[in-house]
């Protein structure tokens, strides 16, 4: 029950982080440099969220950390590709 509550809270926090970052992205539409920075920030926050969340529910494993890092790296690559294309 406690794990479920932690998950609900953490996913709510994740949703807030993602929505806020997308809104920030919208605000700086005319500044490509800032868009890249916000994209990198989004990826860093997501990787951090993943590590913190899994450590809180007791499922943190090096494989999980690598998975989140790879997801973050893919995101940064795609952001740079689209913004600076």
């Amino acid at each position: 029950m406690k794990k479920k509550w932690i998950s609900v809270t953490n996913f709510t926090i994740l949703a807030i982080i993602l929505i806020s970052t997308v809104l920030l992205f919208l605000l700086v539409q005319d500044n490509k440099s800032l868009q890249v920075r916000i994209g990198i920030l989004l990826s860093v926050l997501y990787v951090s969220w993943g590590i913190i969340h899994h450590s809180m529910i007791g499922s943190l494993h090096p494989k999980v950390v690598i998975e989140y890092l790879l997801v973050g790296a893919i995101a940064v690559t795609l952001i740079i590709t689209v913004v600076w294309m």
Partner: peptide, 13 residues
């Protein structure tokens, strides 16, 4: 959730 947000953000570029 992360990739959907990324998609939305990239559409705004």
């Amino acid at each position: 959730m992360f990739f959907v947000s990324l998609c939305v953000a990239l559409m705004l570029v």
